[in-house]
């Protein structure tokens, strides 16, 4: 019986064969979760700063952000991942090692250091997914910020706030609330994009399921389970974000207050 043909007894024996690896497989889910949480956080921080600059900053800031977004929208994540991990990371490692051996390090730490810093696959993946998500998140926040009436910004300035204070205290809290649905969408996309981290050797869901599939030859079962696991993580994240959205909702604003037809 070939492994591709389907029978109940075959599936059951697949299960029993794969079962001992369950801890290893679920550990991959842990790695994936940490990976995308870190990437989303980087994207959130960079995205809010970029959107603030684009909407309320000087014109050159807007052009800079446009350029950034244009680049990350235009290049596939797979290309970025290779470019970063096998190209840029090496340059960074050399630069860091040179710096550690330099006069500057001697002055700072009292000695020239002989370090060989390594950019791990995990760090590369977090960086690429984070930088990429920053581009998309910046446009989510930009749209949300532009939908807050500019009069509120003016009123904040009129009370004596600086532009930065007005953005932080008045515009962002509203824009972030409005962004949650789009953010939840970004989460679900990024979660699935994170499977690409497998190509640089991050030991996440895809990489571990592939390893077990190759070892046991139970390809069908393991890839179905991998798909289910991604589905489950998507559903949980989207649920949680929707709960957050409802918790921070401003009374009187938004759809659920409408009680008529």
């Amino acid at each position: 019986m070939s492994s591709a043909s389907f029978s109940l007894s075959g599936l059951l024996s697949s299960f029993s064969e794969a079962w001992p690896t369950i801890g290893y497989l679920l550990g991959g889910a842990g790695t994936t979760c940490i990976l995308i949480l870190a990437a989303m956080l980087i994207g959130l921080v960079m995205g809010t700063v970029m959107a603030s600059g684009q909407v309320y900053g000087p014109p050159w800031a807007g052009r800079l952000v446009d350029l950034y977004v244009w680049f990350f929208r235009g290049v596939p994540i797979l290309v970025l991942m290779f470019l970063f991990h096998f190209g840029l990371a090496g340059l960074l490692e050399t630069a860091a090692a040179d710096l550690a051996r330099s006069d500057l390090a001697a002055r700072l730490f009292g000695a020239r250091l002989n370090l060989r810093p390594r950019v791990s696959p995990f760090v590369s993946a977090v960086a690429v997914l984070g930088l990429c998500s920053a581009a998309y998140q910046s446009q989510i926040f930009r749209g949300a910020m532009q939908s807050i009436p500019v009069g509120q910004f003016r009123a904040a300035l009129a009370l004596g706030m600086s532009r930065r204070q007005a953005v932080a205290a008045v515009i962002l809290p509203q824009a972030l609330r409005l962004s949650i649905p789009a953010w939840s969408n970004e989460y679900s996309i990024l979660l699935k994009d994170s499977a690409i981290a497998y190509v640089v050797g991050v030991s996440e869901i895809m990489s571990r399921f592939k390893a077990v599939a190759s070892a046991t030859h139970r390809y069908l079962l393991l890839y179905v389970l991998a798909g289910l696991l991604y589905y489950l993580l998507t559903a949980i994240g989207v649920r949680l974000l929707d709960r957050l959205r409802r918790r921070v909702r401003t009374p009187g604003l938004g759809e659920s207050d409408a009680t008529g037809y």
Partner: peptide, 10 residues
Amino acid sequence: IFQDFNLFDH
């Protein structure tokens, strides 16, 4: 004081 109030909605 503005014509359209400009209260902070949140």
